[in-house]
Design a protein around this nucleic acid. Structure first.
Lengths: 275, 275
DNA sequence: GATAAAATGGAATAAAAATTCCAAAACGCC
DNA sequence: GGCGTTTTGGAATTTTTATTCCATTTTATC
């Protein structure tokens, strides 16, 4: 580090992140530790002291001070001010409300709702954290290039499949929902150039796996939405998207799966528009 | 204030609020100011100094100190520690991740996903805040007392309806999904003692409204899941549940609606079990 | 492997914040 | 309106926290 990069301090959290990313490479060992720890714990800056953060990053306080100055602040206090001002906790009374709901007694409808809301929220958060961006991009690319989309998802995955069918229809994308009504077998509808979008979670639906295998054997691309990379569906798929859904009791929240589904739909929709 | 109420300090935000509410009445002028300001700005305790809060409450710092001690803390630092620690969960780096996803560029699949995840989360939070507990309890009671459940929800509400049908089936509750396949009209299946569970959002589906009206005219109870109390569906309903769903772009996240749906299903399921 | 430059750790210092204490003011009661 | 009690404001003190500085170690270069 030379002292030539005395640039003005970031004034927004955005700028802060940019600066952090920009300098993170080519930084000596201890300062790198600071950068890594701060990047992973940005949210704690507002409520911690130099000593606490230094302990967390496993560096002496003076190293952290130097780090703040390299970022352009006059010191730690300047950096902290940025985050204290921007600080807006996610509990403007939401957490309180949840607790109130649960206090109605275990098993009461309100308490159940609180549990499912929480399960949904956790699912969404895990999805954001765990999503494989490359796999997502690959799946979207595959779907954009397809002629007709075939969608299958049965039992608990059926709501997702039907939502996808609805979304594709809205966007004038040719799509066919294989819903198993009347035990009809529509596999002859799979034509070269088509793509199958299959959704299933443990215990995996036989019909879904069978259709995926069939599609694969005919040379079609298969995009899989499932719960684990080791899912049997993954074997037949060219792109696999996993969704870490949190269950409460016997029921899957589906929030995360639906968020992923609608993302696929809209991404494919806008991708095709441009094409 | 006498000094006899030296009770132990609150150890959770809940306890804090309770204590605050308990003492807020019968407090001298300055301390009352503290209580009011703190109640309205609880979220800033973690990131403020005594001086800053005192300024905000328009009292001298020493008054705020006294206030902290009345609450049971040894001083301001003790109170602040509670909020700094409580703040730890919530976003263990979830927000960071969201920002990263969005940085992939507007319109990219990752950025879209971030938006939908956020929309889902907001929807769930609003649901928790806005849910009418009495209406929910009433709806559950109605559904428990029913002979057969009829479920209708078309277009964007169809995933919800199908999920409900799946859940009821899993729990051996007699339920019939009116899905409009083949333009078949199943209204003759509505029999006295049955209940209709109807779901629709603006723009409201004609078929759903018609079936609800029909059911109502035959004297059946109708439980409505919709977006506003003034929805046309509400006119035909004996119990109305509203879901404040946040949209992103043209698409509804459905997270909150599904959470509500699954709550209904499980509450009804356990209610019938006990009966 | 010698030399210069950079990086580091920790002790010393400065600054800021929290906390106490008490004299003065306000209040309630007779 | 006087008297005891409670409340108040602010200055003094203590504690915590941030920051600087420099001797020592590490690293890079030749």
């Amino acid at each position: 580090m030379t002292e030539t990069d005395i640039r003005p301090a970031p004034t927004t959290v955005e700028e802060f992140r940019d600066r952090l990313a920009a300098i993170s490479d080519d930084l000596p060992k201890r300062l790198r530790q600071c950068a890594d720890y701060i990047a992973a714990n940005t949210d704690r800056i507002a409520v911690s002291t130099v000593a606490e953060l230094a302990l967390g990053a496993d560096v002496p306080p003076s190293a952290l001070m130097r780090f703040c100055q390299i970022l352009g602040f006059s010191g730690f206090s300047g950096m902290q001010r940025l985050f204290r001002d921007a600080y807006a906790p996610g509990w403007p009374d939401y957490t309180t409300r949840l607790t109130n709901l649960k206090e109605n007694g275990a098993g009461s409808p309100s308490a159940l709702l609180a549990e499912f809301v929480e399960a949904g929220r956790l699912s969404l958060e895990s999805l954001a954290k765990a999503v494989d961006e490359d796999a997502l991009a690959a799946a979207v690319a595959t779907l954009i290039a397809a002629d007709t989309l075939h969608i299958i998802g049965l039992r608990r995955a059926f709501p997702v499949a039907s939502y996808l069918a609805y979304a594709f229809e809205k966007m004038d994308i040719p799509a066919m929902l294989h819903d198993g009504v009347g035990k009809l077998d529509h596999r002859h509808a799979l034509r070269p150039g088509d793509v199958l979008l299959a959704i299933t979670f443990a215990p995996y639906s036989e019909e879904t796996l069978a259709l995926a295998q069939d599609a694969r054997e005919r040379g079609l691309d298969v995009v899989a939405v499932t719960d684990r990379l080791t899912s049997p569906l993954a074997r037949h798929a060219s792109a696999v998207l996993t969704v870490p859904e949190v269950d409460f009791g016997a029921f899957r929240s589906l929030s995360a799966t639906l968020a992923l589904a609608i993302t696929l739909a809209v991404a494919v929709g806008s991708g095709r528009q441009g094409a």
